[in-house]
Design a binder for these strands. Structure first.
Lengths: 252, 252
DNA sequence: CCAGATATTGCACGAATCTGCACGAAATTA
DNA sequence: TAATTTCGTGCAGATTCGTGCAATATCTGG
């Protein structure tokens, strides 16, 4: 490994994580701590990072961790995630469907949150890695790549044994008469089952989903308790959805 | 080989890999290091690359996506991954344990690889996202955060119905007399079960694992068919492991 | 075709750089 | 305060670098 390449890598890691630890780096890169320390010292001399005991920090307070930017997280979606996270209270058992909206909920969970999370999405499971107080349960099954969730008989059987307080359902369409829809039949079946095993279901809907319809129906609007929409969602869309018994929440 | 042709090749390699190493180049192009160094010097003078000790870097910060560097992949671990991937053939059913070594196998799979992958690690599952020809099956269960794998009764039951051709076992210790060990009891049990349901088991062991012992035993050396070690693994370590019936493969 | 000019390549050798280790100093933690 | 961890410096071995030089190949003009 080239020295300059290593230095660049250190800066990347620093930007991503907001900090680096000399000992960890030496282990990860399989080099002596001396070499790492030397690098950190030199980078600090160039003003590219701030040397601290044990490692280094960015020169300017981390803007936004790059890891969280991996999927484009618009302000709107972020607000939806925050509103969703607010529905979760300690002690609850919450099921998370796949999708970027639900991923946003995880990101907005307070680190101290203490509840049980159930998901059939490996992506969600990975996001739960740094929430030490959350009991996470993964539902297995055949991986459906398009949405990155487990489906099929294995998943169905695992779900049949679950009773949850809240289910965050992911959909591709929310329509006044066609209800909640998605693009895959098998996925729709799993979603229905997850709804059935949960006391309540909530849906996060970005503006592009309001009024949209996909091939396979998951259920009617009346089947969910809460629909969270963007703060600037068109009024006529909202009015069209009212009266179906669902409580509509504007995020942000 | 023409000089200008060679220079263009160097720039291409640089663009592709994000770095070039003088020594490697001289070997690949079958020229003396002096010639390569001269080329690099001249290209640097033209401002086409950035000369650094040992090789060269692109003038503009690497375009290689940072996301792929989530776990740092050292040369040694990369070679192990390649060797592991070579054990997989089309049509097989392969079980992947968690861990960065096994993740490295996924990264080295040819995109055309066509087989069935089974895993209880959401991290591995996520890595399989862009292998469209791989049938992926997730084993559910309680998420054990330290290793990011599913464990517990749910996982055990799902595994009991599986029959696989090959299992890539992750361990933290490979010892001549203590055998294969790991740091968590429940995890060890799951690993044992995965071994039992697979026709063959393979282990990727970085140098730091050879001779190491962790609290909980998974099995003896005789229980696995293949042990893949680094190319520079200490001979005395290897000799100590021989005679247990395991076939030892040096990677790279 | 030939002779001289020019360019390219490999080698030698001293200089510079990089890396890991040892040891005492400083900072951190209990 | 005492124990542990981390830091910084000096040093030695190894690698890489740059320059000068000679040998060979290629080009150019007559």
């Amino acid at each position: 490994m080239l020295t300059s390449q290593r230095k660049r890598l250190i800066l990347d890691l620093l930007a991503r994580d907001g900090q680096v630890v000399a000992k960890q780096l030496s282990h990860q890169l399989e080099l002596s701590e001396d070499t790492i320390r030397r690098d950190l010292r030199e980078l600090a001399a160039e003003g590219l990072l701030l040397r601290v005991h044990g490692g280094a920090m960015p020169v300017s307070p981390t803007v936004v961790p790059i890891a969280e930017r991996r999927t484009i997280s618009t302000d709107a979606k972020s607000a939806l995630g925050k509103a969703g996270a607010d529905l979760i209270h300690d002690g609850m058992t919450v099921v998370f469907d796949g999708g970027t909206s639900n991923l946003e909920i995880i990101r907005h969970l307070p680190v101290a949150a203490r509840f049980t999370a159930i998901t059939h999405s490996p992506t969600i499971a990975v996001a739960l890695e740094d929430r030490p107080n959350v009991d996470a349960v993964i539902i297995g099954g055949k991986l459906f790549r398009h949405s990155m969730v487990a489906v099929g008989a294995l998943a169905a059987e695992a779900i049949s044994r679950i009773r949850a307080d809240l289910f965050f359902l992911g959909v591709t369409g929310v329509h006044p008469t066609e209800g909640l829809t998605t693009g895959d039949m098998e996925e729709a079946a799993i979603k229905r089952q997850l709804m059935a095993c949960s006391a309540e279901t909530a849906v996060l809907a970005t503006n592009d989903k309001l009024g949209a319809v996909s091939p396979f129906q998951i259920g009617g609007l009346g089947d969910i308790a809460t629909l969270i929409v963007e703060s600037n969602a068109a009024d006529e869309r909202i009015v069209a959805l009212a009266g179906s018994g669902v409580s509509i929440l504007r995020a942000g």
